[in-house]
């Protein structure tokens, strides 16, 4: 009976994974079929408190965000500029935790089919336990993780657990990454590639880096995955420019600032319109 049970489970698992497509793949396929550019929106979960944060996330989705990056706050966000640092501090002060983030994912997932990528730093997930956090994140309704300080060389401790749950480890490529290195990083990459457009931390910038077209074109030689570009995009015009060569654009710090100013719906609409025009 034990053997039968295991075999039965195995068959179910294989069949199941054939038919359940990761929401990220599904979304990019939809976007491609419709000839549209994707809008990836980042918000730090718990900023400034749980209720307002949940409302902001819902506003972003309702306004047309295609893929949601939910920030898991960390005390020492070394790749983030002042806006996301401050958002993380507010969220932690309001009591946000990894399990609090998973609760938020569960509530959002109950109402929306938007792909959700958890975005954060390694230590809170390491402390929670990579295996457990992947299982719990899938159960909550997440589709992938993007861990800023887990480069290719260190990702091996997490990816088997994500793979097991059918979730994606989203790979980052920077302007400093050589083409050869990009090939190595992207060899087994899934979902989409996050191209960091500037050599710097996150945060809105006046000018978007110039040679995106060249870099994205180089990346196309290394992968067939969709390419999202981010870091520094803060308005519709910048988003449109950034999307010329990429498949999607990531907006983070600007959404946080807009949420603080009470203009999140306006900014989301502006970016959506710019990307669709």
């Amino acid at each position: 009976m034990g053997v039968l049970h295991i075999v039965g489970f195995g068959v179910f698992f294989v069949v199941g994974s054939l038919f359940i497509m990761n929401r990220i793949d599904k979304k990019f396929k939809e976007l491609k079929d419709a000839g549209r550019k994707g809008f990836v929106g980042y918000l730090t979960v718990g900023d400034p408190d749980i209720a307002v944060s949940e409302q902001n996330i819902r506003t972003a989705i309702e306004g047309g965000v295609d893929i949601l990056e939910l920030g898991v706050p960390f005390s020492d966000p070394t790749a983030d500029g002042p806006t996301i640092q401050a958002a993380s501090q507010r969220a932690l002060a309001a009591g946000m935790s990894v399990s609090g983030v998973l609760d938020m994912v569960r509530r959002i997932r109950a109402d929306y089919d938007v792909p959700i990528v958890l975005f954060g730093y390694a230590n809170p997930l390491f402390r929670y336990g990579y295996e457990k956090v992947c299982a719990d994140a899938l159960a909550a309704g997440a589709d992938g993780m993007l861990i800023v300080n887990l480069p290719h060389e260190e990702s091996g401790a997490l990816t088997p657990h994500l793979d097991k749950q059918g979730m994606y480890f989203i790979s980052l490529v920077a302007p400093t990454t050589s083409k050869e290195r990009a090939r190595t990083i992207l060899a087994g990459a899934k979902g989409f590639v996050y191209y960091i457009m500037v050599t710097g931390v996150t945060g809105a910038r006046v000018e978007v880096a110039v040679d995106i077209v060249g870099h994205v074109s180089d990346l196309r030689d290394c992968t067939d995955l969709p390419i999202a570009v981010g870091f520094g995009v803060s308005n519709g015009a910048q988003a449109r420019k950034a999307a010329e060569s990429a498949d999607a654009v990531v907006v983070g710090s600007a959404l946080i600032k807009a949420a603080q100013a009470g203009t999140l719906d306006t900014l989301v609409a502006e970016i959506r319109t710019a990307l669709d025009s």
């Binding site: 790749a79 300080n149 887990l150 480069p151 060389e153 980052l172 920077a174 302007p175 400093t176 050589s178």
Partner: peptide, 20 residues
Amino acid sequence: DNGHFGIYGGRYIAETLMPI
């Protein structure tokens, strides 16, 4: 080669700095 002393060390850093 990746800077690990047993389970410790390594390079837990953003991709932008990895090539550096």
